[in-house]
Amino acid sequence: MTTASQTRSNIERHVAVRRKPLLPAVGRRALLLSLSVLFLAYVIGPVYWVFVSSIQSEADLVSVPPNWVPDDVTLQNFHAIFFYDAKEVTYESRRIGDPATGDFIPTAAQNLLPALYNSVYVGVWVAILNVLLSLTAAYAIARIRFRGRRPTLYLILVTRAIPDIALVVPLFLVMRNFLDIVNTRESLIITYLAVTVPFTVFILINYFESIPADLGKAARVDGCSHLQVLRHVYLPVGMPAVVASLLFAFLTSWNEFVLALMLTSTIAAQTLPIVISGFVFDFTTSFSLVNAAGVVAIVPPVVLAILFERYIVSGLTAGAVKG
């Protein structure tokens, strides 16, 4: 028989354990873990599949159901891309090289490496020139109260309302008649500047506006001209936005398809997206090769994005936070 004190302590023992958290620690862990798995599957899964598809032989690849984890790994596709070996195409080799069983490497594959080089070349130049143009314009718009400031900004931003396809013919004419640089990498570089500058100007203006105005004032009083203020204050302090702009400009030009398709006609200037799209529509191309080309196109931007993730985030969102 329990005594009064024992009863009291029993009650206390039970009543004291009060207000359990909504999700007990273990439950929260499990939920987060499953969400993480879902997240990874969604975000990385498709890319993983492209990667896995590229290192299988065609025979393995076209098996039903598809292999998640390949039994046999082969690098023949990448070998074909990077060390293209012009095989003589005869009736025999064509018959043997059935796309469904692999071994047939289309001649277009040899264009991948030059296209890769073009994409890099164009991308880097666009990034550099873009930042040079945007930095000065963004600083002036953000910090100097000059007449026509608002209209200039709106003008710059509104140029992006027009879909790129509409600009193809006029741009082609500009390249041919004014500048005489049709089918060159330079024509792409200039074109991509038009495409990327508005957004980078926007990013930089946002970020610059979050930099205390007093810093610039102190620099001016110390003896800086506006250009020097940009160089000594806004460039170093605004580095995250500058990095974000560089990356964005590079990625956009790496990405770009329509304008490159229309403005270039030979591999002298064609970029990766064009060559890859050529593969997709060429039924003789093996799936694994297409995926391998995809991998080549994915790796540089993804690596850059992951490396500079922190800069991208702080550069892009400095203004958004303030609303």
Binding site: F39, I44, V47, W49, I298, A305, I306
Partner: peptide
Amino acid sequence: LAALLLVPWATPSIVNGLMWKW
């Protein structure tokens, strides 16, 4: 996970297209 979040954003749209088509 936050760093990996950027992978889809960095994927070129052509590759995105061919990836899902595949």
